[in-house]
């Protein structure tokens, strides 16, 4: 092993930024998956509630939650583009 390789191995070992980036990447994947799950649950709930009364407070609340979660997923995916998160989803 030449000295350059050895130094780069040392650098990898001590370079926390790569480890942090990987950690953030894994965490984002986890967040997106849980948000997607929540989103599909909400969709189902919205369908059921809409059947009862389309203009009820419950439907309004669910719509708001759905909108927020959709925006959060979008944002998480946007962040993920920087670290190729889309490849995993």
């Amino acid at each position: 092993m030449n000295i350059k390789k050895l130094l780069s191995k040392f650098d990898d070992f001590f370079d926390q930024s790569k480890k942090k980036q990987k950690k953030k990447y894994d965490k984002l994947v986890k967040i997106i998956l849980s948000l997607e799950e929540k989103k599909s649950e909400l969709k189902q709930e919205m369908k059921t509630e809409s059947k009862k009364n389309k203009k009820s407070q419950a439907v309004y609340n669910l719509c708001k939650e759905y909108k927020v979660i959709t925006k959060m997923i979008k944002k998480a995916k946007k962040q993920g583009h920087l670290i190729n998160i889309d490849e995993d989803i």
Binding site: I31, S34, K38, K64, E65, V68, I69, M72
Partner: peptide, 14 residues
Amino acid sequence: STEIMTHIGVLKEK
């Protein structure tokens, strides 16, 4: 954290 943040988002929307 996700639930709290979602709740905050809903309150902002409302």
